[in-house]
Design a protein around this nucleic acid. Structure first.
Lengths: 345, 345
DNA sequence: GTGAAAGCGCTAACAT
DNA sequence: ATGTTAGCGCTTTCAC
């Protein structure tokens, strides 16, 4: 039982395909009588337009492509929902894809999406993808980057204010009396990650604390979890006087907590902890892990609105298309004043 | 700059569109000379076939539709990846959608997907969706249900063995000496949830323990979290002698842990805990929350393979298309023997 | 206000 | 071994 086509509706009602199309799309000036007849036939027969045919004919699909690093990750979960809600208001559907931060995969994804006639893109940057992004732009396909951007490219983007939110978190640690603050991050060429590290060093400078490279651990991207836990344990082992640690991503936070648990250290007595990008577990895990919560909803909504505006579907109320959004600092039990005179090294 | 079409490749090479199509699809018998020339032109011009046109012409899209309750949830994360990996081997793309366990939404999703010419479906059942599923089957659109099924319908499905894995978990609690075991579940008409509750009662029967309805708490679906926490606290309050509790879903487990934390109870001293459907947090949260881990990967892989087999893309090695997969019982610190003579009420 | 005809890019009969 | 033709379901001139 094949679905019924527009042409058949035309036959049934004695109208021409043109007229039916016009009625369906609310275009043209069709007499009310004919209009009603067609609408009735559509209803009676459960007619639904074939989107594929529409896409082929019109050249656009009302579909947006969303490429994130990990479709199974916690950042994506919240993001997906809000993007979908916003896009749906304007009749857009979403195709989600994971790049796994892999350049080849990301390239294939873009190629695939473009041949599905995707109308616009929300993309989490992958190192090296600049050319493909520029190419989309050259072909007048709107792109909005989220979570990061390419400093050398003039492409709209929406992300959290990485630098300042790290500095806020650092201030909090330092004001609580911590001086030997470790920083665990990942070795990947993404601006957001680099900005977080910069925030760490800027904070030390601001408070006149000496930076010590031994306190900074850069784990290789996608390192085996067991090895990563060991590496963090080693960091603790060789820096016994370290009294606080900043994890630059939530999965590093998890690895860090496992390390701390295995070492039998107590939070915050032995070590204060703060982590970039909140997770439910941070709230539940005694004594509560402090974190920098990304405004995921706002990022998703802003990015979608920006894209819709670029597609001419929506008025753009924003002044710029390079947007950073402040994060939310959540202080939990993992940071505690340790009664040391303030700002004295 | 529009992408180049097959016809243009034909013009460039002086071949006919048919020949180009044949070469592209590795069909027919084309002379090596022509073949090479066409392939070269394809490469030189960066030609890529327009999937939309192919779909319209052939009537299928090489796209599978996946409808789950919550695209942001933890079950989905692991599932999505494996489905994608399996499907990709056979050149299929995936469109993911959230039903939010809402019948209307699920209906719209199916309608939408079918007009996108989706070739097959993996669907997490929503109460009341039977007719739409049967309709797909009537239209020869293959469907595989995951995580649940409709007992009255003959539709292929893949899910964890809910009954037996709950009974295993219960045995573990009972053998550890617990007699007053609470069961917190959700009031939704899904077979998997009902089977879990049945597992609870069957276990009590098996061990000759008296069932007590006061120990069973059915929370309304999508109840406000704060209220749910309060309800669980009330359960504890009015059953002071309850010495263990079984949460029938992972999000109920989280709610339960919050309740327990707020009441200041100690796990497992005051109360033993086990939860259906593992979460990373259960491993990290001292003393470790015992859980029944769903074989998500295996469910996803099996379901996808089944669907691909139904599409004729893959040999089916399975005996049946109604598959239950055993779960993995993970005992952590939340269950501990409490030195009571065994199996004496 | 309505219809005829062309065509989006591709594939599949059916020639030759 | 390769080309001609028709048509998937729809929209869009352009005519009347």
């Amino acid at each position: 039982m094949k679905p019924i086509s527009l042409k058949e509706i035309a036959n049934i009602t004695g109208a021409s395909p043109t007229t039916v199309s016009l009625v369906l799309n609310g275009k043209g000036r069709i007499s009310e009588a004919v209009r009603q007849k067609i609408l009735q036939a559509v209803k009676d027969n459960g007619y639904e337009p074939n989107r594929i045919a529409i896409s082929l004919r019109t050249g656009h699909s009302n579909v947006l492509g969303v490429i994130v690093d990990d479709i199974g990750g916690p950042f994506f979960g919240a993001l997906a929902k809000i993007i979908e809600v916003e896009a749906e208001k304007f009749g857009f559907r979403i195709i989600y894809c994971s790049s796994e931060n892999n350049l080849e995969k990301a390239r294939e994804l873009i190629s695939m999406l473009s041949h599905q006639l995707v109308d616009g893109y929300i993309i989490m940057p992958v190192p090296g993808l600049q050319d493909e992004i520029l190419n989309l732009k050259a072909n007048h396909k709107p792109v909005v980057l989220i979570d990061g951007y390419y400093p050398e490219l003039d492409i709209p983007h929406v992300l959290v204010d990485n630098l300042n939110s790290v500095m806020q978190g650092m201030s909090c640690l330092i004001e609580a009396g911590h001086r030997k603050i470790g920083f665990v991050t990942v070795d990947i060429d993404l601006i957001q990650i680099k900005e977080r590290l910069r925030g760490y060093f800027e904070s030390l400078k601001k408070f006149n604390l000496k930076a010590d490279d031994k306190l900074v651990l850069k784990l290789p991207y996608q390192m085996d979890k067991g090895k990563a836990v060991q590496a963090v344990k080693d960091l603790f082992g060789s820096n016994r006087d370290m009294d606080a640690v900043f994890f630059s991503t939530n999965y590093l936070g998890i690895i860090g907590i496992e390390s701390i648990q295995e070492l039998g250290l107590s939070i915050p007595k032995d070590i204060a902890v703060i982590c970039f990008d909140d997770l439910e577990i941070f709230r539940l895990l005694p004594p509560g892990i402090s974190s920098i919560q990304q405004p995921v909803l706002e990022i998703g909504r802003t990015a979608t609105d920006l894209l819709l505006a670029m597609l001419g579907k929506k008025k753009n109320h924003l002044q710029t298309d390079k947007i950073t959004i402040p994060a939310n600092l959540i202080i939990r039990g993992s940071i505690k004043a340790i009664n040391v005179p303030k700002f004295v090294e």
